[in-house]
Simulated assay, not measured.
Amino acid sequence: MLKLKTTEREPTNHLDPDPDPNQDPEESTVEKTNGMTVIDLGNGSQVLYTPKFLSYQNSWDYFHYLDKNIPWTRPTVCVFGRSCIQPRDTCYVASEGFPDLVYSGYQPHAYSWDEFPPLKEILDLVHKALPGSKFNSLLLNRYKGGNDHVGWHADDEKLYGPTPEIASVSFGCERDFFLKKKPSKTTVHAKENGGDPPSKRTKKNNDSDQRSFVLKHGSLLVMRGYTQRDWVHSVPKRVKAAAVRINLTFRLIC
């Protein structure tokens, strides 16, 4: 069984600038505490990011275990009415007695936590880092190269409740992670009725509608509150991302 050694977390300054004192209070704000970047996206949405959640060597130990021992599969899914091979490998772990997970017409087999003890170790560490959290399911994804990706989506399945907290731990190759605000109902209504497009926003406003991160080896990113209701996220294709990335997303089934 793998054992993790905790490391001191250092503050990070490369993700986002310090909050602008003249910033509109409705726009997102950024705080940094004990190595964790806390981003208030507004309207009850929040993202937390810790680039050094796990130590470097232990992260590689977990990576090699997951790469070799998880029963990865690359399923056929239905996207916009068309069947296609999912552009990444996947596996699903969940506690017994919960509703089945179904996404894009695919229902993965639910493995037990007891089958993969290192996953329980990582789960315990996530719970310690996020007091009050209680995750009981896990979706694993393996990106084998730059062509493997996940498109824009929100993890807003009903079984996660109205304000799901999702904790994402990454191993291996660094990949870009994007967040984009969903269009407002006013904008959608105008488009549907053939109205004029909204006036061009300033760069500052555009920046407040999107966020980007480089998810590092051994990092933790958390989406909470109404992030899944109001935002979508993606991991896009990257030609230069030649190595394997493994990502664990812990969720709470209500």
Rank of each mutant, 00 (worst) to 15 (best):
P198A: 11
P197I: 07
A94K: 03
N141D: 06
R211D: 00
R142L: 04
K144V: 12
F98N: 09
G161K: 04
A94S: 15
D207E: 15
V222H: 11
G172H: 03
A154T: 10
Y106E: 11
P197R: 03
K134L: 06
G105D: 13
V232Q: 15
W113T: 10
L221W: 13
K158M: 08
D155T: 04
D176G: 10
S168E: 07
L179N: 05
T163E: 13
P164N: 05
L221G: 02
H153K: 08
N193Q: 14
F135Q: 07
L220T: 06
L138F: 09
Y111N: 12
N205E: 15
K144M: 09
E174I: 06
S168C: 09
D176Y: 10
H153A: 03
K203Q: 13
G132D: 09
C173G: 01
E96G: 03
G195Y: 07
G195H: 09
R201D: 13
S199K: 14
P99M: 04
P198E: 14
T187V: 15
H127D: 09
P131H: 14
L221F: 14
G195V: 09
L221A: 05
E157F: 10
Y160I: 01
L130A: 02
K144P: 04
P118M: 05
F177D: 00
W113V: 07
H149P: 00
H189M: 06
K204W: 02
R229T: 13
V222N: 06
A190T: 09
S168K: 03
G132M: 11
G172P: 01
S137M: 09
R224L: 04
V126Q: 06
Q228S: 02
D124K: 12
G161W: 08
